[in-house]
Design a protein around this nucleic acid. Structure first.
Lengths: 344, 344
DNA sequence: CGCCATAGGGTATACGTATACGCATAATAT
DNA sequence: ATATTATGCGTATACGTATACCCTATGGCG
């Protein structure tokens, strides 16, 4: 009744009530084995009654561990920023949940791609590890990653797993996903399959998807035609331009695998303007399963990544690295979502 | 060369190099006026050279201020979670940027609407203030808000400003936005305008939009017809159902103002299935300007909220409250985006 | 019966910063 | 010339926790 709600209880309060010393409280709550079961139970009960929470600042100060992870989100430098991939938003949800579950706080920070990356350095003081998130051109800051490694900063990033580059990478099974998409197109009888998306070092994830497509085609006895590949970054305009270029080349094709839904949507616009029917004339598959994919006409077949799994795995992997445990798994399966654009 | 990169410099290191005491360093860097300009300049120079950053844990522990804000995001309990309003994502970006600019960290936490809200209590220990974000049914936790007020926790929430409820609220000018939408529909000659969206206390933002619509109609000498209003929550399915119900009623209408783009998209599906042409038979306006709004056919006229401004303003208002300054402004303008669905 | 290992927990202290207080020196006032 | 006040800074200490170290009681062993 007369209790001040603002009077945060400390470990001393608990110690007093439990008739032990403050360090014993600390040990009990941290799970040290040099405290008897009875004492521990008593302390935990009192702590619960008082609504006690460990003061993170004091704890971090003393132990030099923050129990906080930092999330650096790299925004696409491309203009239609409202189109930020919803994939990352879902991931954000599962990341925060996993952090909470493991008793970590999550510090978040958006980065302009070219900007003060040294913020990462700052954040490395404030967190035990860093999660790097972003689509697109990782090349831009690979040298910065090396810098992080040098400083011994623990981090994990989302991207192409096959690449085996700097640091620890977690990502979808882009190759397998590409194979699924390719196999599906082959299955519905398509032979000349185009690919829209950078197939260069700049976008390893896109390249993996292309590799998967090629693998599926070869498995079906088809040889991928390099003339049917067009570079594109993940935007509607870029997809439109790529499809226009493809159409202009005159090379015949009966299917398109786009490296992202945005690219696919742009391409669909170009195809429609050219008077082509989907999927009759050209079947099309995207990637990401963004909400808009079910609004296009025809609705877009696409590949869905495991967003919840991704967040969990990123946090898991990072914590493993922080605690110097080996990281077991860092590839996530993807799943093909069949819609009208490949329904023959 | 021989410097250990991991040896974080402390205020003592700086004090030693500057030939002063540690407290003087602290004072100089915090901007206390009881340190001479020369001393301060010298200290700042050394700090910069050493790449010194204040240890936030120590600082917070001593000052009992965390320089951290917590963001509680309330997820819609509705199933199509991938459709999380992109509006909030953009807001997230500007919130993080504004926090960074003001020297605050941002702790983020997603909440299931009905779940352990008492997490907010925990977070109130770890942050100086809380930002509450979420669309939808705020009623559910109004009692919890009262609890926060009781505990003296500083917070600000996104929502209907007109409502004047508990705590500090920042939001778009929903009434003005509704007026703009209504005026536009009247301008293109529509007389019987339907409204899809909860017009109840449960969704004050939607109610404001409806009120704005009514105001615009009355200003044009039209009387809103209550029979043309249908409840709907922000989802495609709900919008579809509402439109179907409206059509079934047989009441004539020549325009729809939907309380959100998702509702509008669902309604468009129902209209198309009923063989109605947009905008000839029925003009339609949504709200939010989600990316999908420019993908529908016809493309959707909608109201765009000032996302960047919203994040900035939320942080601003919260910091004002924390520092016991009056809050000046908490309403943001919205802008009508004209597309095909109202282009006669 | 003495010796040592072990369990269980107390004592003292460190983490890095911010602030109350005191103490000079210098600048003004009386 | 003395009293008064402001300026600029040092001294001491507190914030709440975690950990290195030490101590006691007990039990096992020879």
């Amino acid at each position: 009744m007369g209790r001040q709600p603002s009077a945060k209880p400390t470990s001393f309060d608990i110690a007093y009530l439990a008739g032990v010393s403050q360090p014993t409280v600390s040990r009990a709550l941290r799970g040290s084995k040099s405290v008897s079961a009875a004492t521990r139970a008593n302390i935990e009960r009192i702590a619960r009654e008082l609504n006690y929470t460990v003061d993170k600042n004091a704890s971090s100060l003393r132990s030099q561990r923050t129990h906080t992870l930092a999330l650096l989100f790299f925004e696409d430098p491309n203009p239609d920023e409202s189109m930020i991939n919803p994939f990352f938003l879902s991931m954000l949800g599962s990341i925060t949940r996993e952090c909470a579950r493991r008793g970590y706080d999550l510090l978040i920070s958006f980065q302009q791609m070219h900007n003060d990356w040294h913020v990462a350095y700052q954040d490395s003081h404030r967190s035990d590890g860093i999660i790097l998130l972003g689509y697109g051109d990782y090349q831009l800051y690979l040298t910065k990653l090396e810098h992080l490694v040098e400083m011994g900063t623990k981090f994990v990033r989302w991207g192409s797993v096959s690449e085996e580059g700097i640091g620890l990478t977690v990502g979808s099974d882009n190759i397998g996903a590409g194979e699924q998409a390719g196999a599906h197109l082959v299955e519905i009888g398509r032979r000349r399959i185009a690919f829209l998306g950078d197939a260069s070092d700049h976008a390893p994830e896109f390249q993996d998807r292309y590799d998967g497509l090629c693998r599926a085609m070869r498995a079906a006895g088809l040889e991928p035609d390099a003339a049917l590949q067009r570079d594109a970054v993940s935007s509607e305009d870029s997809g439109y331009a790529a499809a226009v270029s493809l159409l202009a080349s005159g090379a015949p094709f009966d299917a398109i695998f786009a490296a992202s839904d945005l690219i696919a949507i742009g391409a669909m616009r170009a195809l429609a303007e050219a008077g082509l029917h989907m999927p009759q004339d050209v079947a099309i598959i995207g990637f990401d399963d963004i909400p808009a994919a079910s609004l296009t006409s025809p609705t877009l077949t696409t590949v869905m990544q495991d967003m919840k799994g991704a967040g969990t795995l990123l946090v898991d992997a990072l914590l493993s690295r922080i605690e110097d445990r080996p990281v077991e798994r860092c590839i996530l399966p993807a799943r093909l979502i069949r819609r009208q654009s490949t329904a023959v």
